[in-house]
């Protein structure tokens, strides 16, 4: 995380002078110098970074240049919206993707399996911004049944508890889900097909276990190991890269915040966002490792 903080800090330092964007074009030279001194931007890079680290260790990453509030607070305020999207998308991808992958692997030649595979191929190849815009076009512009932007009514940090909020959620969640779902289907299917060829599956059948037990217990338990790894990675990615979806649906989450802040060269916000994302990646990886020990006895340490 300290490496990330340094890299981000450096890039933002090199990217340009935020003061020019903050002040009106007709500001006097004195005003510029004053502003720079106020924000601490008049000092050399190393001094700036040293001050940043000193404050960051105390939990203060600095105030946003634009909003004047602590940058961390701004990011945290926006986080529920992003988490909500990513969490719902991941949830639907997993509960739909794993069974669909299993079905597609057990009878690969059946029509149902073929349609699942066709769907997942489409999901993988169609870019997110395109699906998002087509959804807006169909559901909001032509049919007018779903709102095209915003979060709607928010209750307990999420839109999922109000009808208005749910209506706002549908399109962005589906847009985000499609790709993840397709990925999980393909992964589960490939994993299952591999596992189903193993001797222990044949032995499970030779023991006379019913087919559903062989598939959903003996085979799936082995297939889940690699799938869980990818789910973990993908979940982190979802949180970090909802940017496109949030931009299309004007979703007030961190993805949109980061784009705006990069454009405004609002360094404290960008740094705190990226630190937060890095932190979430660490947490998710930790959780994946914990889940691993439950699923795969081979990684359990005595």
């Amino acid at each position: 995380m300290s490496v990330i903080s340094f890299i981000v800090f450096f890039i933002m330092y090199k990217a340009g002078d935020p003061v020019e964007l903050l002040l009106p074009p007709d500001a006097t030279h004195q005003e510029v110098v004053q502003m720079r001194a106020y924000l601490g931007l008049d000092k050399p890079f190393t001094t700036q970074y040293a001050i940043f680290v000193k404050n960051a260790l105390k939990g203060d990453i600095g105030n946003s240049y634009i909003y004047g509030q602590p940058a961390v607070d701004i990011v945290i305020e926006r986080f529920p919206a992003t988490l909500e999207l990513s969490f719902l998308a991941m949830f639907f991808s997993v509960i739909l993707g794993i069974p669909m992958g299993v079905i597609a692997s057990v009878k690969p030649k059946a029509i149902l399996s073929r349609s699942i595979m066709f769907f997942s191929l489409a999901g993988i190849s169609i870019p997110v911004f395109w699906t998002g815009m087509v959804f807006v076009l169909i559901c909001s512009v032509y049919l007018g049944i779903l709102p095209s932007s915003g979060r709607g009514e928010v209750l307990y940090f999420t839109s999922a508890f109000t009808w208005d909020g749910i209506k706002h959620l549908i399109m962005p969640v589906i847009t985000l889900t499609l790709f993840q779902l397709a990925l999980i289907i393909r992964l589960t299917r490939t994993g299952m097909m591999e596992v189903l060829m193993q001797d222990y599956i044949k032995l499970a059948k030779a023991k006379g276990l019913p087919n559903r037990i062989v598939i959903y217990y003996h085979a799936l338990k082995n297939t889940l190991i690699p799938v869980i790894t990818v789910i973990g990675i993908q979940f982190g990615q979802l949180i970090a890269f909802t940017i496109v979806t949030e931009t299309i649906f004007a979703w007030p989450g961190t993805g949109k915040l980061i784009i705006d802040s990069i454009q405004n060269l609002d360094r404290p916000v960008v740094v705190s966002y990226l630190l937060m994302v890095a932190f979430i990646f660490v947490i998710i990886n930790f959780m994946v490792d914990v889940i691993y020990t439950f699923v795969d006895p081979r990684v359990r340490v005595k």
Partner: peptide, 26 residues
């Protein structure tokens, strides 16, 4: 269905490779 009743009950089988015939996660 009828076969699964017989397999592992009245007729059972031992496979060639013991390393591979037990489920590694159960």
């Amino acid at each position: 269905d009828e076969l699964s009743n017989i397999r592992g009950g009245e007729i059972s089988m031992i496979f060639q490779d013991p390393q591979m015939s037990l489920n590694p996660v159960i």
